[in-house]
Design a protein around this nucleic acid. Sequence first.
DNA 1: ATTTGACTTAGAATTATTCTAATTCATCTT
DNA 2: AAGATGAATTAGAATAATTCTAAGTCAAAT
Lengths: 145, 145
Amino acid sequence: MKRLGQEDKETLATALDHAGQRSTPQRETVFGVLLDQRDHPTADEVYARTKSRMPTISMATVYNCLETLVSSGLVKQVNIEREPTRYCPNLAPHAHFHCRDTGRVYDVPVPVGTMEKLTDVLPGTYQADSVELVFRGHLSKGNSS
Amino acid sequence: MKRLGQEDKETLATALDHAGQRSTPQRETVFGVLLDQRDHPTADEVYARTKSRMPTISMATVYNCLETLVSSGLVKQVNIEREPTRYCPNLAPHAHFHCRDTGRVYDVPVPVGTMEKLTDVLPGTYQADSVELVFRGHLSKGNSS
DNA sequence: ATTTGACTTAGAATTATTCTAATTCATCTT
DNA sequence: AAGATGAATTAGAATAATTCTAAGTCAAAT
């Protein structure tokens, strides 16, 4: 899949407009790259993938586009342990699992309300507007018990 | 408080020994700095504080000591959003709250078993050995309801 | 006393990211 | 339509936290 579908294009245009920003070919392509392969790529990886669709794009533009997508709420940054920032177009509340063996990051769906409920542990003066839950460990093969 | 108490010294020596490492004046001092002011200092801050007690210490040694303390289990690293790594000698399971206004990081005690319970959301093939819970937001003044 | 290897040190190197300044481009005005 | 305006893109320089390197120091063991 090389281009953004009509629906995603609308989503992008609307969100950018709402944030006072334009939709551009570069932003569309970068957004498409993120939607196509949801493996939490780093900026480097996004750059490589985007370059194969739009060879003239620069690293700076990739960073700019990612920043624009993040600030308009379409994409989330995922930071794990000082590793390069990863980018994730999954907007539903979810946790992450970081595999120590492969370094890969997986989305972990959580039941509705779980993330919000976590704020119960906070003292009253702490007003949280975001909750981040990250697991680290290993993927056990063939054991689904 | 400028020097490590006997008890903390023992803790340090034992933990280091267990990890096959020696107790040294530099490691003692860095550990003391972390125990004295539990505000999640960065390596830079640890360096400044340690230098005031031991003026000849170098940045490289501070990094080395911190790494040694982390790998022997006495100290935990706290990474928030690509900011410099912070160091925390609180070994009890706890969450963190990151204030957007001040940038400060606070420990949030959690009821026993809470962190472990979170792993329930993981599919069976995911074996987590650590859980990280970070809140971001603001401290509301005078509202403790 | 000498050797051994761990520890410390200063400074260079690395690397993800941000910044700068110049160019391109789309839209707006006349 | 031509020019003006300002946003977006670009290449490359700059930054900053951390790691690496290679030399020097020190403590313990022979």
